[in-house]
Design a binder for these strands. Structure first.
Length: 113
DNA sequence: ATGTTGACTTGGA
DNA sequence: GTCCAAGCCAACA
């Protein structure tokens, strides 16, 4: 992880998000050790589209479970459509049962770390 | 090298 | 419960 840039680290974690689950920028940032660099996580997603293994950026939302970055996708609706396609209910750009589908990298990946 | 920006978070009123 | 302000880190120009 040391050689990988912050962006790559973010990609790795996001790529590990199980299908049907979502996580928050802060959770990823915190997992990477920079809990206050949550902005960077979102900013890293900016390059997600050109990241080689297309990362499920639609599974990353803010702490409110709101699809803040949906507008950055190819189509604003694509993010919601994809989430629903995975079984995640979305209403008014926010995830329903966010707590329920929330995926905490620190708890799920802590063992491998 | 400095300054601006950003798909965020938290805390206080 | 909502709204405003400050913080913090990394990439980019």
């Amino acid at each position: 992880m040391d050689r990988a840039s912050f962006y790559e680290q973010v990609y790795q974690v996001v790529a590990l998000i199980p299908r049907g689950r979502v996580t928050s920028y802060g959770a990823i940032a915190h997992y990477l050790g920079a809990k206050n660099a949550s902005r960077m996580v979102g900013y890293a997603m900016h390059d997600a589209v050109k990241a080689h293994p297309p990362i499920p950026a639609h599974r990353v939302v803010n702490r409110n479970g709101l699809l803040t970055g949906k507008f950055h996708f190819a189509s604003p609706t694509q993010m919601q459509e994809r989430l629903e396609s995975e079984g995640i209910k979305v209403n008014e750009d926010k995830i329903i049962n966010f707590k329920n589908v929330f995926w905490n990298p620190m708890e799920e990946l802590d063992l491998e770390k």
